[in-house]
Design a protein around this nucleic acid. Structure first.
Lengths: 141, 141
DNA sequence: TGTAATTCCTCTAGTGACTAGAGGTTCAAG
DNA sequence: CTTGAACCTCTAGTCACTAGAGGAATTACA
């Protein structure tokens, strides 16, 4: 049986975050000692690693919940897991391409003022000036 | 003089967000009509566009505040603007490279279960299995 | 000028995914 | 048996908004 601190050390998930996941229903409520402290087993450890890995991949908690609910499912239900992966992949590729166009723009801005400051700093101007961008950009996360 | 709705339409910034920026001090408090409605001028419009463009580039509000405070500055102070641009650029490049390694991994996961569902769905397994990843991944935004 | 539709006002609360801190209790080592 | 580390719950804060309630002002048109 593991304490919450042990779990935290072995998953790199911070203690308050573990409790937060429990609150959100992503982790089952663990057994407690007589003194009310949480005690986990290997199943809980694996589940937390699963959650963490999904988070690292960028899945929102609701998607992870969905995946967890697929445990023991079969047939068509399992398509959902595949769909989540595909959706995340598409989302990721989209983010990458948008970030790349921002990279172009930011490097233009940064170069605009390389050390020498004339009358008005070109960087400040560039930050305010959308007209030199390739196109409109949308919010990213 | 423009109403808040006009400003919103011409900057793509939602009305509550404009008020939010005012609250945070990113926009000066505008004049009001006798009936207490906000009225903006061209200076305010440009400033909002500046804020929005910076946000699109991924700058946090505090950085934007910093940039705004540089207006009319000179000499060494202007280096700060350049630093902000450089820092954002580095951050962006880092994010892109991490997202790319996730892309590799997600596409591996997605391929793991292409339509056919055997005993246990390989996608679910892959989501939980970090061992096949190239390396550890850290959180992204 | 009247009235109806639209836009605006403030304020509160909710989002996602945590994180920090206060104030108190329990556990493990020596 | 004591001490110090680890644990408990609960509240509130973070960031950058967004949504909604309930009401007031403005604008368009007859």
């Amino acid at each position: 049986m593991y304490s919450i601190g042990y779990l935290s050390r072995h998953t790199q998930v911070k203690i308050p975050t573990i409790r937060f996941y429990e609150d959100k229903g992503l982790l089952p409520r663990p057994d407690r000692t007589a003194g009310n402290q949480r005690r986990y087993d290997d199943t809980a450890l694996k589940r937390l690693l699963f959650v963490r890995h999904c988070r690292d991949l960028g899945l929102p908690l609701t998607d992870i919940e969905g995946l967890l609910s697929l445990e023991g499912a079969s047939g068509g239900d399992l398509n959902q897991a595949h769909e989540i992966a595909e959706r995340q992949l598409a989302d990721l590729r989209d983010r990458i391409s948008r970030l790349r166009s921002l990279e172009t723009e930011l490097s233009r801005i940064s170069k605009a003022c390389d050390g020498k400051h004339d009358h008005v700093c070109a960087v400040l101007h560039a930050f305010g000036d959308h007209s030199e961008c390739a196109g409109p950009h949308t919010h990213l996360t």
